[in-house]
């Protein structure tokens, strides 16, 4: 690789930064040279790029088959969608249409799939088994795995989950009059948490590494 300046140090191709590992370099480019990350990945980590291509191809084929077979564009999914009222251009049907026409990479890169509120209205109204909601959840999982766009709020929740077993730490809350309370101050019983955090994390790690969809 051209950006390797010595056996143990990697040099960033866009600035003077030096990094001890590939991971550190990728994180740096992702954070600091955001606009260049795709070119960077394709240039230096082709394998991953091929994976994206492959997944896109497979998805396009399977979902497009599925949706053209089932989705008759009745548009019932998009009536009443709470996000359609707030975000211009967002309709559940549009997501399905984009998948059908192979714009999966664009969908994964944008934040549009993260705007769904999981209200399940489209799932309820869709006459088929695979509703726009289900497709959005598959796309979110792919986006999270491939690393295109994974919102910070979700990332933070995952981190706390691995460590603590809950999505957030217990909070000290403040009343309207400025008083502060935690669980203890309100005489609530002790927080319920996995009793053996090490085993819990091990189990969770083991499963979440698996690339299977059930």
């Amino acid at each position: 690789m051209t950006h390797v300046s010595s056996p143990n140090v990697l040099k960033c191709p866009y600035c003077e930064g030096l990094f001890p590992s590939h991971k550190a370099l990728r994180i740096h480019v992702g954070n600091i040279h955001r606009g260049k990350i795709d070119n960077f990945m394709e240039e230096f980590y082709g394998g991953r790029s091929i994976e994206v291509e492959f997944v896109t191809f497979m998805l396009q084929r399977s979902i497009a088959n599925l949706t053209s077979q089932f989705c008759d564009q009745c548009n019932r999914c998009s009536v009443g969608c709470p996000i359609s009222k707030v975000v211009e251009g967002f309709t559940p049907r549009q997501i399905v249409t984009d998948v059908q026409s192979g714009k999966i990479r664009e969908l994964l890169k944008s934040n549009i799939i993260w705007k769904c509120t999981s209200c399940l209205l489209c799932k309820e109204q869709c006459p088929d088994d695979t509703s726009p909601y289900d497709i959005i959840m598959i796309l979110r999982n792919l986006s999270a795995r491939i690393g295109y766009h994974f919102p910070k709020g979700f990332k933070d929740a995952d981190k706390t989950l691995y460590r603590l077993g809950l999505i957030q730490e217990p909070r000290m809350i403040q009343t309207k009059t400025g008083e502060q309370f935690d669980r203890e101050g309100l005489c609530l019983s002790e927080l319920s948490l996995p009793s053996d955090a090490r085993r819990f994390t091990k189990a969770l790690n083991q499963l979440s590494r698996m690339r299977v969809v059930y």
Binding site: S118, M137, R140, N141, A144, F154, A157, D158, L161, G165, L166, I167, S189, S192, L193, P194, S195, F200, A203, L204, L207, S208, M210, V212, V213, Y214
Partner: peptide, 25 residues
């Protein structure tokens, strides 16, 4: 009765990261 040792149910955050991990939770 308090459910000692309980954790998050996994939905809707961890279900995004890992569908199998969610179901385990």
């Amino acid at each position: 009765v308090d459910l000692d040792g309980a954790s998050c149910c996994g939905f809707p955050t961890f279900s995004t990261t890992s569908p199998v991990g969610w179901k385990y939770m």
